[in-house]
Design a protein around this nucleic acid. Structure first.
Length: 419
RNA sequence: GUGGGUAUAGUGCAGCGGUCUAACACGCCAGGUUGUGGCCCUGGAAAACGAGGGUUCAAAUCCCUCUACCCACCCCA
């Protein structure tokens, strides 16, 4: 029995799991490059204030899910629960408003949220995201959505749905919310208890309650995209136009709202076809007010983020293979003390010239050493014994064919390094 | 914060009151070839049955408490 275990909601990423992670991160970076997004890394922790202002004080994330602590200098810090606010902070801190706009960034990072873990939900989880800051062009919205979609398509994940909606801006949303409240107040006796509090606290959230009767109410509720101001309406029409131009199979869902306060206008989600929880694999939207909220001048922006663990889960569910990680190409086996020295030396030389070499672990029979070679999956095994030392050669065995020949050190290097 | 489920070797599991000195599979180690892997055969190491308490002549098996993990709600990636 182990004494210690990884803290709740966290897990070790074991070697066999790394192939998934690396594959996903590599693809994320490939797509970023394809669209001209440059990588940024921000600190794991930030001033607590950044998330209060950025994510929204009223959100669940900030209210009950944040890991907050004070350091020895008395600074109030918070483990980053999401990626957008820190990127915007960096944008402002480094004067990126002086770069040519929009500034296109992407990140791959761990996030921390204190929640009850369950399938696809962890306290430490990894996401990657794309952010485009400094441009309100709906074509840019379409571009970010296109990136997200292309990523999933290139991963081979199928049966995905792209859901979009527009939730307006500070000009038109208040009026819409009034209408929504009025509508729900009429039907409030059939609302579930959660929704009764939502009605006061966060009426937009009424729309995505999973309760059956609430859903029924939501289906005929006033629709945000029918209550947009002229600017937002035009933006939304153009967004749909560009999505069509790009050939993206979007579905409009007036019930799609997102949990972070900063979203304006475009919101979107990508959902796999599974029943039950954690239906969202990725999502994002526009956050035209966030930079200003953080102390910059009014700056339109939008982004997309997705969870690496959830992507991996989908890959596994579909039995999609990921490319394996390359291992060592040769194992050096030896028999006897004199050969041991030669083996150590040879391994050193091979590695120095860039050939991934494994040294057989000591004191074992040749049989055991070959077993080791087999399980390591090396292509070749070099065998050194007294006979070889005397002759100044080594045995080179090719594992798949079991062909074995005596070669000189020179020939060995040509085979392992040449070609 | 609320509800449900599960806890037995490294992993996956069997066992459902005495026959448990806890089985099986994979994995690990070794032997079958005094210098040759993968298949096969043989053997071995590895579990005080999550922790504590109780019932009983007898508990891995029944009861209670705790803890951990999983799943769901909330919310989200």
């Amino acid at each position: 029995m182990t004494v210690y275990q990884a803290p709740r909601g966290t897990s070790d990423i074991l070697p066999e799991e790394q192939a998934y992670r690396l594959y996903i991160e590599q693809k994320a970076a490939d797509i970023a490059r394809l669209y001209g997004y440059k990588r940024i890394d921000t600190p794991v922790f930030e001033d607590t204030e950044l998330f209060l202002r950025g994510v929204g004080e009223a959100t669940d994330i900030v209210q009950k899910e944040v890991y907050t602590f004070e350091d020895r200098g008395g600074n109030k810090l918070t483990l980053r629960p999401e990626g957008t606010a820190p990127v915007c902070r960096a944008y402002l801190e480094h004067g990126m408003q002086n770069l040519s706009q929009p500034v296109k960034l992407f990140y791959i990072e761990a996030n921390y949220r204190y929640e009850r873990p369950q399938a696809g939900r962890y306290r430490e989880f990894r996401q990657f995201g794309y952010e485009a800051i400094g441009d309100s062009d709906p074509a840019l919205d379409a571009e970010v959505i296109d990136m997200a979609w292309r990523f999933f398509v290139s991963m081979g994940i199928n049966n995905l749905h792209l859901i979009i909606n527009s939730i307006g801006c500070p000009n038109c949303r208040p009026q819409y919310l009034e209408k929504l409240k009025a509508y729900y107040t009429q039907g409030s006796q059939t609302l579930c208890n959660d929704c009764k509090t939502r009605l006061e606290k966060n009426p937009l959230r009424l729309l995505d309650c999973k309760n059956e009767t609430c859903r029924l109410l939501a289906s005929t509720a006033p629709r945000s995209y029918e209550h947009l101001c002229p600017e937002c309406a035009e933006h939304y029409v153009n967004l749909k136009k560009f999505l069509s131009v790009l050939g993206l199979p979007y579905e409009v869902d007036h019930c799609l709202v997102r949990g972070l306060d900063y979203y304006t206008r475009t919101v979107f989600e990508i959902q796999p076809e599974i029943e039950g929880a954690q239906s969202t694999i990725g999502g994002g939207g526009r956050y035209d007010g966030l930079i200003e909220e953080l102390g910059g001048k009014p700056t339109p922006a939008l982004g997309f983020a997705t969870g690496i663990e959830r992507i991996a889960a989908n890959l596994k569910r579909q039995n999609l293979p990921v490319p394996g990680l390359p291992g060592a190409v040769v194992l050096v086996a030896y028999l006897g003390e004199a050969a041991r020295e030669a083996a150590v030396k040879l391994c050193g030389e091979l590695r120095k010239s860039g050939c991934a070499a494994l040294q057989a672990s000591g004191g074992k029979s040749l049989k055991a050493q070959l077993r080791q070679a087999n399980s390591a999956g090396v292509r070749y095994t070099v065998i050194i014994g007294d006979d070889e030392i005397k002759a100044g050669t080594v045995q080179l065995r090719e594992m798949t064919t079991s062909e074995q020949k005596n070669v000189t050190p020179q020939e060995l290097k040509e085979i392992l390094l040449g070609k």
